[in-house]
Design a protein around this nucleic acid. Structure first.
Length: 424
RNA sequence: AGAGGAAUGGCAGAGUGGUCGAUUGCGUCGGUCUUGAAAACCGAAGACUGUAACAGGUCCGGGGGUUCGAAUCCCUCUUCCUCUACCA
């Protein structure tokens, strides 16, 4: 959620930046928010004056009673009746404007960073980096969904039976490989100065709102009606919300957390023929890094996170590229996002395995996440996060790219100490 | 799940209807003293909102109510503690 003060101070700049998102309602919503803010403030002012009067009258009555001047006290009391009436109706009107304004504000997406280009869809994203060799596969190479079946390491049929589509079962070396990757990712993050966190896998609505999944992406999360809880779509939600309603000290910063969690996504409407095997699942594992930093340091932190993810992929010897998302493809809450894609050589496709974003104050404003600066002023912090990495697609690329003519998988050396085996 | 108790500023802990946004202690910050530190002494300091700056307004777990006036009384929800039951 944007701060109303930014809209007031830099309306034209905000509108120009929002245009890069191809967000057509920007003008209308911003105008509406400002108009409602004006009304809200007027109402607040009137109400405050009224309350001030009522407060001082009540105080006087107290004094009069103490002095034994009951008649005068009664006289004053009778005057307060209509004040109360007015207070009630002003209170209601004020609340009305507040909710209206809030409803408008939450519909305005974050302001794209200056480096973000205008674009309508994923096709307009810019490739800013590419590395790694695209492997020459044997002539009889198979896509991962056939490999896993042959090797018996991931079972979609079983998952189908016990749960449903998009919930595979990892077995034997498949399960061990996945666990090895998770441990590898966590160890790398620890070395890079991140603190590990194990959060709950279900969150309340306030948390969903704090990071921006609600109200925007309500239908994308699994919801447990009975307890009014949401299954997390990413560790970003519980981990960032650890710092909701928190005022940090400068010495606590930067916060660097890493968290491994399963992620649950309904993926309503995105299922199609294109999506096979591990490419898109309802439940998948992910290691996520989260940083909370001072505003002036957030883009430096973003670069650091990008460099960190890059390094993971280099270690895994996977060919990858980095995209800077265009305005139209960027998430609602993000100011700048880099996507990492690995090349999955048998299906000849680039698969997104990481998305690293700076949200600036967009989440912090909702979260009321601040720190005290040297002057003891409360300043909204910047939040960032990135996948490091999402497991299934990394797995898909590892399997496809490292297969030999006999259908065996030769794992990169960096994983051997974690898997306990080199070949599947 | 049942019975009882509790929720106050960074922490501890007073306050049971009227100048209480809140006594006090610890902790924190600044000063005096000291070569420096500790101790002692003096002083400062909640959050949000608002104003050009004052002023003003809101906040004692959340929400609602009684009253001219609520941290204090009533209702309700949540959380925590103790005992009982259950359980990994």
């Amino acid at each position: 959620m944007l701060q109303i003060s930014i809209l007031k101070e830099k309306k034209e700049e905000v509108l120009a930046a929002l245009a890069k998102r191809n967000f057509t309602q920007a003008q209308e919503l911003v105008e509406k928010a400002l108009e409602l803010d004006q009304k809200r403030r007027e109402m607040q002012h009137t109400l405050d004056k009224l309350l001030a009067e009522a407060n001082s009258k009540a105080k006087q009555i107290g004094i009069l009673i103490k002095e034994g001047k009951y008649a005068e006290a009664e006289e004053l009391k009778s005057q307060t009746a209509q004040l109360k009436q007015q207070e009630k109706s002003l209170q209601e009107t004020l609340r009305f404007y507040e909710t209206q304004q809030h409803e408008v504000l939450v519909r305005i997406p974050n302001i794209p960073h200056k480096s973000v280009k205008y674009g309508k869809s994923a096709e307009d994203n810019e490739i800013v980096y590419q590395a790694g060799e695209i492997p020459q596969l044997p002539a009889n190479a198979l896509p991962h969904w056939e490999l896993i079946q042959k090797l018996g390491i991931i079972d979609f049929e079983l998952g189908n039976k016990i749960t449903g589509a998009g919930f595979p079962v990892y077995k034997g070396k498949g399960a061990r490989l996945q666990r090895a990757l998770i441990n590898f990712f966590l160890d790398q993050a620890l070395q890079a100065g991140y603190t590990e966190v194990q959060p709950p896998y279900v969150v309340n609505a306030a948390s969903g709102f704090g990071t921006g999944q609600l109200p925007d992406k309500d239908g994308q999360m699994y919801f447990i009606e009975r307890d009014e809880l949401y299954l997390i779509p990413t560790a970003e939600v519980p981990v960032t919300n650890l710092y909701r309603d928190v005022i940090l000290q400068e010495k606590d910063l930067p916060i660097k957390n890493v968290s491994y969690t399963p992620c649950f996504r309904r993926e309503a409407g995105t299922w199609g023929a294109e999506v096979r095997g591990l490419n898109r699942l309802h439940q998948f594992d992910k290691v996520e890094i989260v940083q909370i930093v001072q505003p002036e340091k957030s883009y430096q932190a973003l670069e650091e996170m990008v460099a960190y993810v890059k390094n993971l992929l280099v270690h895994l010897a996977l060919p990858f590229r980095i995209l800077r998302l265009c305005g139209g493809d960027m998430g609602f809450t993000s100011a700048l996002t880099y996507d990492f894609e690995v090349y999955s050589a048998a299906q000849k496709k680039w698969l997104e395995v990481s998305s690293v974003s700076n949200f600036e104050t967009f989440q912090a404003n909702r979260l009321k996440l601040r720190y005290k600066d040297a002057q003891k002023k409360s300043i909204l912090l910047h939040t960032l996060n990135g996948s490091a990495l999402a497991l299934p697609r990394t797995l898909a690329a590892l399997l496809e790219n490292n297969q030999d003519a006999e259908g065996h998988i030769h794992l990169p050396q960096v994983l051997w100490q974690y898997t306990g085996f080199e070949v599947i």
